[in-house]
Computed example of a mutant assay.
Amino acid sequence: MDVQGTVAEGFEPVRDAFVRNFEQRGERGAAVAVYRDGRKVVDLWAGTKDVDGTDPWAVDTAQTVRSATKGVAAAVPLLLHQRGQLDLDAPVGTYWPEFKAAGKERALVRHLLSHRAGVPALDRPLSVEEAVDGRSGALAVAAQPPAWEPGTDHGYHAQTYSWLLGELVRRVTGRSLGRWIAEEIARPLGLDFWVGLPDDEAHRVGRLGPVEEPPAATGGGLKLRPKRSVAEAYRDPDSLTRRAFGAIDPLPDENAPLYRSAELAASNGISTARALARFYAATVGEVDGHRLFAPATLTVARTEESNGPDRVLVVGTRFGLGYMLHGPASPLLAPGSFGHPGRGGSLGFADPESGVALGYVTNGMRKGVTADPRAQALVRAVRSVL
């Protein structure tokens, strides 16, 4: 395997784990980056740019990172709160009056971030065109009756998170969430990260696609065995699981220009591994003179808001405000880590106690929602170094 990039002394086990992902776990093209105390210590890439192609992965290749987008998107309301522009304990209807409809009067801003708002699914799924038009999604979630009283339970808002956060940010700032990220996060930090891909960057983005599940050597993804698995729940067309992931129907072509150029905070962020790691490094410390989260904001981001059986993902999950927390469903580096995986593989997170931030992106999509074996192998390698 022709691995490109650099590894700081002592972090060689991460390179070894990265190589084994290609040799043993079906990796086609991927990149991983790690920061430690604001300094980049791992920056590796290998394989092909497209999952079904032959062109090599380049230094600037980016990929759609699916739900890993949620972690970057969550920083927007948290930073607005840090700047005094958004009250996390205010009703959503304070900023978005139409959202108070159908029994959602008591839904708070923090409920949107912690997957407690009660609207993970829509009674009528949106078409792809509606999902990306910047209007229909917000109208649909505002009118949707909640599946439970907001604040009383939690369930992963797999798709509706896009329109919940996107419209809240638009009402508070007058800017779209993708534009806010571009102007206030990506530009100052120098991140190759987009929610809403510009046309002039499209040539850098690889094609996603499924890869085979290796029959052995899956590499440590936790085997969770609830009474009903998420796969079983997804096969049930009437389940909240299927309805939540199917809030856009039919599922969009993630490689299509229409989808890539849209602004979906839940699912269509496009990033390099380097950008994900650098973003998370800036949430826990200073990176080249820039820091995103003040200490109080960092505490808020990773303080547990939701814990227990997830009404959508079926297994037990833990969430802070916008971030998955370390636990069986999403093992991260250590108990204090926070971040977000992307369905099928990608991962970004930070661990404040060790000063570590990691970003991993891949073009090979596997079936799991969290705890991808390839990402977990890289996490274990970092842990072994520390």
Results as ranks from 00 to 15, higher is better:
226 P>N: 06
226 P>Y: 04
227 K>E: 14
227 K>F: 08
227 K>Q: 11
227 K>Y: 05
228 R>I: 12
228 R>V: 14
228 R>Y: 00
229 S>D: 07
230 V>F: 03
230 V>W: 01
230 V>C: 06
231 A>R: 10
232 E>G: 02
232 E>T: 06
233 A>R: 02
233 A>Y: 03
234 Y>G: 03
234 Y>F: 14
234 Y>M: 08
234 Y>K: 07
235 R>D: 06
235 R>W: 02
235 R>N: 10
236 D>H: 01
236 D>E: 09
237 P>H: 12
238 D>E: 15
238 D>Y: 13
238 D>P: 00
239 S>D: 10
239 S>R: 03
239 S>F: 02
239 S>P: 15
240 L>Y: 08
241 T>E: 01
241 T>N: 03
241 T>W: 07
242 R>Y: 04
242 R>K: 11
242 R>W: 02
243 R>L: 12
243 R>K: 15
243 R>A: 08
243 R>C: 07
244 A>E: 04
244 A>K: 00
244 A>D: 08
245 F>K: 05
245 F>Y: 15
247 A>L: 07
247 A>E: 10
247 A>I: 12
247 A>K: 12
247 A>C: 06
247 A>Q: 09
248 I>T: 15
248 I>C: 10
248 I>S: 12
249 D>F: 05
249 D>A: 15
250 P>L: 04
251 L>R: 14
251 L>T: 13
251 L>H: 13
252 P>D: 02
253 D>T: 12
253 D>K: 10
254 E>I: 15
254 E>D: 13
256 A>G: 11
256 A>N: 11
257 P>C: 10
257 P>E: 15
257 P>T: 11
259 Y>P: 02
259 Y>E: 03
259 Y>L: 02
259 Y>T: 09
259 Y>K: 01
260 R>M: 14
261 S>A: 15
261 S>V: 06
261 S>N: 10
261 S>G: 14
262 A>I: 12
262 A>Y: 13
263 E>R: 11
263 E>N: 04
263 E>Q: 15
264 L>F: 11
264 L>S: 11
264 L>R: 12
265 A>Q: 06
265 A>L: 12
265 A>G: 06
266 A>V: 09
267 S>H: 05
267 S>F: 07
268 N>V: 06
268 N>G: 06
268 N>R: 07
268 N>D: 02
268 N>H: 13
268 N>F: 10
269 G>F: 05
270 I>Q: 09
270 I>K: 08
270 I>D: 12
271 S>R: 02
271 S>V: 07
272 T>D: 02
273 A>D: 05
273 A>C: 09
274 R>Y: 03
274 R>N: 14
274 R>A: 13
275 A>V: 10
276 L>V: 06
277 A>E: 07
277 A>Y: 08
277 A>V: 10
277 A>I: 03
277 A>L: 07
277 A>N: 08
277 A>K: 11
278 R>D: 00
278 R>I: 02
278 R>Q: 11
279 F>R: 01
280 Y>R: 00
280 Y>T: 06
280 Y>L: 03
281 A>G: 00
281 A>Q: 09
